[in-house]
Structure formats: structure tokens, C-alpha cells
Computed example of a mutant assay.
Amino acid sequence: MKKSILSIVLLLITSITVAQKSQRIAYIDMEYILQNIPEYLEAQNSLGAKVEKWKTKLDKEARAIEVIKTDLSNEKAILTKDLVEEREEDITIKQESLRRLESLYFGPKGDMYNLRRQLVKPIQDQVYNAIQTIASRKKYDFVFDKSGDLVMLYSNKKHDISDLVVKMINIDQKKQQKKDKIAAKKELLKNEGLTDAQKEQIAKKKAVREKKKNDRLSRVKRIEEKRKAKLEERANIRKLLKEKKDALRKSQEEAKKKAAIKESK
């Protein structure tokens, strides 16, 4: 359906071009442009690293759940009904937590979506702004994306403005870097002219931010310590159950041996 609509649009544009010889058309290769913007490549690499980290964490949680399920299956025969129900409830909670975490990372409005917008969208906006500026200056009526769904059966290289877009983005970025340096120098000079009281106020605000950050890290640390303690407690319970199981099996074997000796007499 989408390709049909694009084909109709192409036919309409072609008809307009034939009817009006003054129409000016250009095209770009979006993939080529993005691959020649270092910031875009860095953003893609950063996003890819995050995605791999999230996938690794999800896989680790999934494997941990499978271990708990296997342990329950092996020990079910020697556990009380209450302990079995407790373990099953724990597994259900962990599975629901895993699903929530997966949705948090890869859901429609999850971390991946937000991070992509944060990293990639500003660069894409730069590209579109550069295209609009060039089209306005060169008086192009239409600019097509060669790498898009609209198939170009033929394209003359002289109408390709991809390199021009890349150059314009590089120029804009250099201008922005220059502005940032000037702003940083102004801020530095501004701080140098501050009174001791003003400097102290800035230092206090910085200390408050640092304290909030440290408090947040401390809360995360406490939660992690509680989680580890709980896991250790469960490991000790499994160890005790295993020891009881081994002791029971040993007792049964000794009983069988005694019974066999008694029968032989």
C-alpha cells in the first residue's frame, strides 16, 4: 500500500515536471549522510552498547529463574506444601518482574525508544534542517531520499546534494562548538568576578547536588545488599535441605543394609 502511494506521488511529480520545465529536483542518500557524521556513529555505538547491556541483564535474570524452577522441581518431594507454595509464588513474582523490566527497556515508550530519541533524533533534525536550507538557497522544488522506499530507476549524480548536506552540518557543528567555547569562557570570567558569598552559595548548591547523588547511590547499594542477603539466605536453605535429603538417603541405605544382614542370619 505504501509503495503504491509513493508510486502515485512519483507519477504526479513527473507529470508536473513535464508540464513545468522550470521545476528543480534534487536527491540525497540519507544512509550516506548519516554514515559521514561522526556524532551519529557515536550515538549508534552508544545505543548498541546499552541494548547489549540490557539484553545481557535480561538473559541473566531469565537463567536465574530457570535455576530456581529446576531446584524446586528437584526438591519438591522433600519440601512441605507451604514451602512449595512459597517457592512457586517467588518464581511468579520474578517472572512478572522480568516482563516489567523487558517492557521498561524495549517497550513502545521504553528506555531504548527514549535513548534513541535523545541520541539520534537531534542529528536527524540537523540533517533535515540542512536539507531545507540548501533547498531554499538552490531553489529546489523537490528533494528525494535515494535510500528511502521511493525507488529511483535513474539518478544523475549532478543532482545528488548529499555531500553538500554533510558539509553544511559540519560547518554548523563547528559554529556551535565555537559558541560553546565562548560561552564557557564567559562563564569562567563571570565566576572569577563573583564575591566570596556568591562563590559560597554556588558551592553549597553543588554540595546539595552531590549529597542527593550520594544518597541515591546509597539507597541503590542498600537495596542490592538486601537482595544479596536474601539470595544467600535461600542458598543456605537449599544447602540445609540438600543435607537433610542426603542424611535421609543415607539413613534409608543403612536401614536396608541392616535389614539385609538380619535376613541373611
Rank of each mutant, 00 (worst) to 15 (best):
N214W: 08
A77R: 12
R219L: 03
L164M: 12
I65W: 00
I78V: 12
Q23V: 13
E210W: 06
K157E: 10
K213S: 06
I91E: 02
V165N: 01
K250C: 00
K213I: 07
V84H: 00
T17C: 08
I8A: 14
D125L: 06
E66M: 06
E210H: 07
K60F: 11
G193Y: 06
R249V: 04
E75W: 02
L150C: 02
V51A: 11
L115E: 07
I37C: 01
A130Y: 03
N114C: 05
I78N: 07
V18Y: 09
V127G: 01
K57I: 06
I202S: 05
K186T: 15
N129Q: 08
R219Q: 08
K258P: 03
R117E: 04
I237Q: 13
R63T: 14
D82E: 11
K174I: 06
I223R: 12
L231Y: 15
I223N: 13
R238V: 05
N236M: 13
S136D: 08
L240E: 12
Q132L: 10
Q132S: 14
S46P: 01
V67L: 08
A26W: 00
D141G: 07
S97Q: 07
D141V: 04
S136H: 07
K213A: 11
P122Q: 05
N191H: 11
D180H: 06
R137T: 12
I5H: 13
R117K: 06
I16R: 11
K50N: 06
K213M: 05
Q132V: 14
K178Q: 12
R100V: 02
L79M: 15
R100E: 06
Q173R: 15
H159A: 15
M168W: 04
I65P: 02
I169C: 00
P122E: 04
K204V: 10
R238L: 08
S155I: 12
K138S: 09
L104K: 15
I134D: 03
G110Q: 02
A207R: 11
K212V: 01
E102L: 01
L150W: 00
K81R: 12
D71Y: 08
L58A: 04
V9K: 07
S15Y: 11
A43G: 03
Q118Y: 13
K262T: 04
V208C: 02
I169T: 00
A260L: 07
A135P: 05
L231K: 14
L231I: 13
R63H: 14
Q201I: 12
E88W: 05
Q132P: 01
K121E: 13
E254R: 09
G148N: 14
K2L: 09
Q35C: 02
K146I: 05
K57F: 02
Q176K: 04
K157G: 09
I123P: 02
E263L: 11
I68E: 14
K53H: 13
A260F: 03
K212I: 05
S136V: 10
K76D: 08
E263N: 09
M1W: 01
T133M: 07
P122I: 03
A62L: 10
I202N: 10
E210V: 12
Q198E: 11
R216K: 15
I182C: 03
S4H: 05
A259T: 02
R222G: 04
L115D: 10
L6H: 07
L115R: 02
T195V: 14
E243W: 05
A77C: 00
K138G: 11
Y105K: 03
K230Y: 15
K21H: 09
A247W: 03
L189A: 07
A135E: 00
